[in-house]
Nucleic acid binder design. Sequence first.
DNA 1: CGATTAATTGAGATAAATCAATCGATGTGG
DNA 2: CCACATCGATTGATTTATCTCAATTAATCG
Lengths: 254, 254
Amino acid sequence: MKNTGSRLSMNQPKKLKEVDCDNCGLYRLCQIAGLDADESALDSVVERRKKIANADYLYRAGDRFSGVFAVKSGIFKSISYFDDGREQIIDFHLPGELIGLEAIDEGIYLQSVIALENSSVCDMDFAEMEKLEHKFIAFQGSVIHALSRKVRLDQYQSLLIGAQSAEQRLAIFLISIFSRLRAHDMQAHSFRMPMRKDIANYLGLALETVGRVLKRFEESKLIESKGRHLKICNYSEIQQRAGLIQYDAVTKVA
Amino acid sequence: MKNTGSRLSMNQPKKLKEVDCDNCGLYRLCQIAGLDADESALDSVVERRKKIANADYLYRAGDRFSGVFAVKSGIFKSISYFDDGREQIIDFHLPGELIGLEAIDEGIYLQSVIALENSSVCDMDFAEMEKLEHKFIAFQGSVIHALSRKVRLDQYQSLLIGAQSAEQRLAIFLISIFSRLRAHDMQAHSFRMPMRKDIANYLGLALETVGRVLKRFEESKLIESKGRHLKICNYSEIQQRAGLIQYDAVTKVA
DNA sequence: CGATTAATTGAGATAAATCAATCGATGTGG
DNA sequence: CCACATCGATTGATTTATCTCAATTAATCG
């Protein structure tokens, strides 16, 4: 049952690339909760591989909090709105990451979350989790780590605000995405981009600007992109353009 | 010993306005840990009212994680750096809020935190907390709530990125600050601003732009500001300019 | 009360937004 | 299987908000 990350490289692209449970962002919460007890107990808590179709909602702002979701495959966006109806993307959610953490406190989901392609998640029921009394401390510990990690990664947002050119914003975006992907797959060097308009929205740039910068990046051999597929060719040069200090202060120290 | 929030309004300004323990951002972690046991146990865990002088470091990026800090009074900034040495402010920390949450996961503080005026904190030792076994679940629960709240409030950063004018950024900044202050003091309507250059840095704007926008706000009677002191005069109009939907999606639903 | 640091004000340069038109891909139905 | 329609991406021309640079004024502090 155990996978050692490197084994699932992407030489043989499967139909649907999934994050296996050992690399899930919930810090083995599943295993803690049930694996060494009995599988059936776990199944009552976690609905594995729930499918969410492209453009479907995972939940909506205002829904009552039931638990968090771990992304198995695909990509999601969580959104908020300005009063003119303009949507603002708060975050993208990549495989292995958790969705819904902001709702634990108030008990209500504050954003709406939408799949950007056909995706799948693990649905983890918090109320059920709490019933696993003998595992509860470990459960809480996992949640704390997942939350702290999220807070840490949110630093990239601040760096985006401080970036003083569109080029730097795109570079930071790419670095951010890939350091997050690599948290669950050390070999990751390509990913299926969201649409231009979603990237532009997230970065606070015009659609056209995003296109022009990506084109420049491609001309400089920093990336290759065809259609939605994007491949990193020169990570360190992108890091340079992002202006980030060499050791990645957000993802890892040293 | 119990205070019902409303009792401590700010009609009689003390020399140093502090957040009392009942309104601390740690969700009564102190009380949970020791209050109904014995005070001495608590004192071994929490160093109350540790003073941090203006411009002093609370901790530095790379320091080993020891625990989180609750701001009793004053204001802090946490910072990261671009490779050209330019500083980027990741966040401000207001009274009642917690500092250091991003470090729980990796066990290392990833930012440097600096006092922006003479301030005081509660220093809460996580290792000691963990020894209070019979209180541990409650302790973890408090930490989870504090973290989730932080994740929720970080949404404002995303909204800042999406703002499409300097005016909107400033307005969002003000709304963000005051909704955070009001989480611990419902009556809050004034606060001691950081320096212009820190605000500008945080918002990704030029120093001069911040000055010009604040001046416009003052001319429109949205705020009053003399020196570092800023007072909100027309909250709803500021919310309008921020473009945020009327019910504040970040702070509270409804 | 000078000396240092912060804030203000103005003029000009510029990166990115906006506007508008074209091109390309994707998908549908006749 | 090929128009046709829709949607997304690209490209160019123009406008504009904000940055940058520079000079002045105000505030803070030993």
